[in-house]
C-alpha cells in the first residue's frame, strides 16, 4: 500500500486482495462483545466531508474507534470553510494538529488527489464528485466474496445511474482487476459514452443485463447531481429500470443483490427485493466498517 487510497483505477489486484483478506480478520473483531482492539492507539483521523453522508462517515469514524484511533469529524458548513478557507489551507491546518489520516469527501473529482500531494498525512478518498468511491467498491467486493467465495469469473451487472455514479466507476475498475466481468445497464442518457473503455460491457436490454448474472449492484438515482431531466419521471424509471421481483424471475436463482445506499425505495429497487434473502444491503454496511478498519490498519502500517 502507498501513502494514500485515492481510487481503484491505479490500485493493483494484490493491494485489493490484501485489503479484502485483512477485512476478514477485522470482521471477527466486530462480532465480539468488546469490539475494540488497541492496534492504532495514539493515531488520529479526521473526516472532512464537503458532501452529506451518514453511512460512509459514521463507518469511517467507527472503524477508527474500533481500532482505538482518535477520530474527529469536520462538518464543513460549520467550519472555517464557510468563511472561505480553501481546501489546501484546511488540509494544512488539520495536518498541523498532528493528524495521521484524513478522510475526505468532496464534490469535485480530484480533490483528494490534490490534498494528498500537499500534505504528508495519509488521505483516503471517501467519494470525489462523479469520479471514485473506492471504499464502497471494496466493501461491495468483500460482500460478493463473502457470498460467492470468489470474484474471478463472476458476472456482475451494475444497473441504474452510471453517469453520475462514482460507485459504478470504482466498482468497474476494481472488479475487472479481480477477474470479474462487469456489465452496465440503465437509461441511455445515464450511460457515459466512454464506459466501455473502462472494461464494462453496455447492455441494451434488461434481460441481457440479467442473463447469466451472478451479482446485481443496483445504483441510487443521484438526483442531487442530475441537472436537466434525463428521464421523463421517477415512475417511468421505476417501471423500466427498477429491480423488482417480477423482473428477477429471469435472473439466476442465487443472484446476489447489492445497493450502496441510501435507497430510493420503490424507485431503483422494490421493497420486496430489499427484504428478500438475496439482498445483502445491511450486511454491506457491516462489511463497510470491516473494510475501512483493514484500510486504516494497512495505510498506517505502510506509512511507517
Amino acid at each position: 500500500m502507498g501513502k494514500d487510497l485515492l481510487g481503484l483505477e491505479h490500485a493493483t489486484a494484490e493491494e485489493i486482495e490484501g485489503i479484502l483478506v485483512t477485512a476478514e480478520a477485522m470482521k471477527e473483531v466486530l462480532g465480539r462483545d468488546i469490539k475494540k482492539v488497541p492496534t492504532l492507539r495514539g493515531k488520529s483521523m479526521v473526516c472532512l466531508f464537503y458532501e452529506p453522508s451518514t453511512r460512509t462517515r459514521t463507518s469511517f469514524e467507527l472503524a477508527g474507534k474500533y481500532l482505538s484511533m482518535d477520530t474527529v469529524n469536520i462538518a464543513v458548513n460549520t467550519s472555517s470553510v464557510a468563511k472561505g478557507e480553501c481546501l489546501i489551507d484546511t488540509g494544512k491546518t488539520i495536518e498541523a494538529m498532528g493528524v495521521d489520516v484524513v478522510v475526505i469527501r468532496h464534490g469535485s473529482a480530484g480533490a483528494p488527489h490534490f490534498l494528498a500531494q500537499n500534505i504528508s498525512a495519509a488521505v483516503i478518498n471517501a467519494g470525489d464528485g462523479q469520479h471514485e468511491h473506492p471504499t464502497q467498491a471494496l466493501l461491495d467486493m468483500f460482500s460478493i466474496l463473502e457470498a460467492k467465495g470468489r470474484l474471478d469469473n463472476l458476472e456482475v451487472a451494475v444497473i441504474g445511474d452510471i453517469m453520475y455514479s462514482r460507485v459504478a466507476r470504482s466498482n468497474i475498475w476494481g472488479l475487472c482487476k479481480m477477474g470479474a466481468t462487469v456489465k452496465v445497464f440503465g437509461p441511455p442518457t445515464l450511460i457515459p459514452p466512454d464506459i466501455e473503455k473502462m472494461g464494462a460491457h453496455v447492455c441494451t436490454t434488461f434481460d441481457e443485463a440479467l442473463e447469466g448474472t451472478d451479482v446485481i449492484n443496483v445504483l441510487r438515482i443521484q438526483r442531487e447531481r442530475q441537472g436537466s431531466a434525463l428521464f421523463p419521471s421517477l415512475r417511468e424509471y421505476a417501471m423500466l429500470y427498477g429491480v423488482n421481483e417480477k423482473r428477477l424471475q429471469k435472473a439466476k436463482k442465487d443472484v446476489l443483490i447489492l445497493h450502496p445506499g441510501p435507497v430510493n425505495r420503490g424507485i431503483e429497487i422494490s421493497p420486496e427485493v430489499m427484504e428478500s434473502g438475496r439482498a445483502v444491503i445491511t450486511e454491506q454496511v457491516t462489511n463497510g466498517v470491516a473494510v475501512r478498519m483493514a484500510l486504516l490498519y494497512l495505510l498506517i502500517q505502510g506509512g511507517n
Partner: peptide, 16 residues
C-alpha cells in the same frame, strides 16, 4: 491487532 510494534512491523502486510 494487539501487538505493540505496529510502527516497526512488516510494512503494509495484511493479516489473514
Amino acid at each position: 491487532l494487539h501487538r505493540d510494534d505496529i510502527d516497526t512491523f512488516q510494512e503494509g502486510k495484511g493479516t489473514e
